[in-house]
């Protein structure tokens, strides 16, 4: 449990560092972000929100408060997830914009990672079990080559070939225009259709690493005595592969999940931009190009928290699956 407590302390600290970087960045960089931000609001919008300049100044600097005073106010506001008004979505609050876009991103990455996990484990398993055969020599290397591609290039190619030329998938946005998002069949089926191609691209970009890890670990477990023992008992080949060799090889590749997730969050920015998919990544890009700094700050915080949450979930899972960790 001490191990877990240490991890937990690290995550709290990491979140604090992320928040502090977020606080310091606009203050350290030359220029006046608040001025750039206010250009996007008309004078009537400004006069309708008397405190807005001060509000932005605590987030981005440039006011006449001391930096410590700003910092305390900033942390206090972030704890309540109050990033003020998003200039590019005036008069919507930043928190509302983030709350609207984040589920799309999490859905994409979540489903894509589930598929990558199943696919990676299965193909890695077969590749290790039948070394030098087709799966090992063609399927796995093909995925590896694909994962070495820039994700946005894969996405553009997929969009062009599968969306535009073959018409297999819709190519833009998260749902058909004219549909109001809500918890009903029309919306969900449309959203599902639109998510297919982006998910496919993420799987293509990230499944390779998973397969390789699985294969590497599995090659080692195959050499273990209990696998030989199972074979000597005369168990069927498939049963030895799945129940004996693979079962003990699944855990180590899981540790690669969190870094892969962090990387996929980055790739998501590009993939959502290409598909005009209204998730957090696309919103971040739009916010940054439109100088909507509060929105960009909020998304950076939320994405960092997501990555840290993924790390934490993986640690808990490890704790449940691996008894050795519980004793230390």
């Amino acid at each position: 449990m001490r191990w877990f407590a240490r991890r937990l302390a690290f995550y709290v600290f990491a979140i604090w560092v992320a928040l502090t970087i977020n606080f310091l960045l606009p203050r350290l960089m030359p220029g006046d972000p608040v001025a750039g931000l206010l250009q996007h609001l008309s004078s009537s919008q400004l006069s309708a929100n008397p405190g807005i300049v001060q509000e932005y100044q605590t987030l981005l600097g440039g006011g006449n408060h001391s930096i410590w005073q700003d910092y305390v106010t900033y942390l206090h506001r972030i704890a309540h997830f109050d990033f003020g008004i998003s200039t590019s979505n005036y008069p919507t609050q930043v928190s509302e914009v983030v709350g609207r876009t984040l589920p799309y991103s999490l859905f994409l990455v979540g489903v894509a990672f589930l598929i990558s996990f199943v696919l990676g484990t299965a193909i890695g398993m077969v590749a290790a079990w039948r070394r030098g055969r087709t799966v090992d020599n063609v399927v796995l290397p093909a995925f590896l080559a694909l994962s070495a591609f820039p994700a946005f290039f894969t996405a553009l190619l997929g969009l062009y070939v599968f969306g535009l030329k073959l018409h297999w998938f819709p190519i833009q946005h998260a749902y058909d225009s004219g549909i109001v998002p809500g918890f009903n069949w029309t919306f969900l089926s449309s959203a599902f259709r639109h998510a297919q191609l982006p998910i496919l691209v993420i799987v293509g970009a990230y499944a390779g690493g998973w397969m390789l890890n699985m294969r590497t670990v599995m090659v080692n477990t195959i050499g273990e005595d209990y696998v030989l023992m199972a074979q000597a008992k005369g168990l069927r080949d498939r049963r030895v592969m799945t129940r004996y060799a693979a079962r003990n090889a699944i855990l180590p590749p899981l540790n690669g999940f969190a870094p892969l997730f962090a990387s996929a969050i980055g790739g998501l920015v590009f993939i959502e931009f290409i598909f005009s998919y209204p998730g957090a990544g696309y919103t971040l890009q739009q916010a940054v190009l439109g100088n909507d700094y509060p929105l960009a700050q909020a998304i950076l915080v939320v994405l960092s928290v997501c990555v840290i949450a993924a790390n934490l979930i993986m640690d808990v899972l490890n704790l449940i699956l691996d008894p050795r960790l519980r004793s230390t």
Partner: peptide
């Protein structure tokens, strides 16, 4: 610790936000 923090904060969003402040 610093290395681990840098590996935990997603690099691309951080770079996107950082370069947005750059004139």
């Amino acid at each position: 610790f610093v290395i681990n923090v840098f590996l935990t904060i997603p690099a691309i969003p951080l770079l996107v936000v950082a370069s947005s402040y750059l004139k």
